[in-house]
Amino acid sequence: MYDLIIIGGGPAGMAAAVYAARKRLDTLLTANDIGGQMNWTTGIENYMGYQFIEGSDLIEKFEAQVNHFPVDQKIGQKVARITKIDSGFEVVSESGNKFQSKAVLLATGKRPRRLNVPGETELTGHGVSYCAVCDGPIFAGQKVAVIGGGNSALEAALDMVRIAEHVELVSATPLTGDTVLIEKLSNAKNLRTFLGHQTEEILGKDLVEGIVIKDLRTGEHKKLDATGVFIEIGLVPNSDMVRSLIKLNQFGEVPVNCSCETEIPGLFAAGDVTTVPEKQIVIAAGEGAKAALQAHRYLQRLAR
């Protein structure tokens, strides 16, 4: 039985692993991947110590620091659920592996929100993408659609007006992203914007051929041609594995107090999966460190 199982390989989980190891806790770090949302990030200019660093380079530095310590790692394994047992917790992976520990630190972060419309699942990777910065260049000279109205959507649209023949920007709400991005986009000749339009369906058999949108004011449907659809409508917390254990807030985030404690003693949470305001790498790393130290205090109390 481990002292602590840390779930999540983003900045919160990796910082927690370093702090837990330095407190000599017998620790398991389990994660879908190393890096978490940093894998979707290009240039980072606000992580202290680096005026500029690529997301992938920062991940490698975090990873090297974790590997410096004796922390067991199970990477590439998805956690299905966490249950309470007499001596602590049991963490069960989707493939059925079971691990037990006295305390658990949930640092599972967030993932891109899905539209939940027909065609989306079937066509993901076949023209539907959640990473414009990755897949955008494949659609050079083609017609694409960007769904969303926040900063991620506007940045994707800005990238794509330079690469694609034509870009349709579809948002159910007014544009909520930064004014500077909206101004930059207003100069694009190959962009058409549909505000107050909801995306209802993604069309195509083997590859994406277009989308169907609905004017929320008139109810009128329109079909737009596109070979690529970039969905940038925000993020949802990866909190499903504790849904039966604790009460989540309205956004699905895990409520924590300022000591990263959840309502269940021994279950800690840190970073973007929690109710802590502001989702930033530096904040997640700090929260992860704090949660590991609090878990250490909890284990000390248990041992008394």
Binding site: N39, W40, S56, I59, C134, P137
Partner: peptide, 13 residues
């Protein structure tokens, strides 16, 4: 790969 794709960079590394 594509040039700025972080996952691509990570895979190559």
């Amino acid at each position: 790969t594509t040039p700025v794709c972080p996952w691509c960079h990570r895979a190559k590394e």
